Amino acid sequence: MKILKIISLILALAFTFFGYNIYFKKKYSLINNFEKDYKNGLKDEEYAKKVGLIELILGILFLLIFLKISL
Rank of each mutant, 00 (worst) to 15 (best):
L53V: 04
L64N: 10
L56G: 15
N21T: 07
S8Y: 02
Y28K: 12
E35P: 10
F66T: 13
K49L: 14
I57Y: 05
I57G: 12
M1N: 08
A14E: 01
K49Q: 11
D37S: 12
G52D: 02
E46I: 12
G52V: 00
G19E: 01
F17G: 09
I31K: 09
I7P: 00
K49T: 13
D37F: 12
L71Y: 00
F24L: 02
E35L: 09
K27M: 11
L58M: 11
S29F: 12
L64E: 05
Y23A: 15
L64A: 15
F66M: 02
L13F: 00
L67V: 00
S8M: 04
M1C: 04
I10M: 08
Y38D: 09
I69W: 02
N33L: 14
D44R: 07
E46V: 00
K27F: 01
D44N: 15
K68G: 10
L63P: 13
I7E: 02
K50Q: 05
L64D: 03
K26F: 09
K5E: 04
N32W: 04
K25I: 03
A48M: 03
I6K: 07
A12V: 00
I31T: 12
L30W: 08
L61T: 11
K50I: 09
E55F: 09
K36G: 02
Y28P: 12
I69L: 14
V51G: 06
Y47G: 14
K5T: 04
Y38F: 06
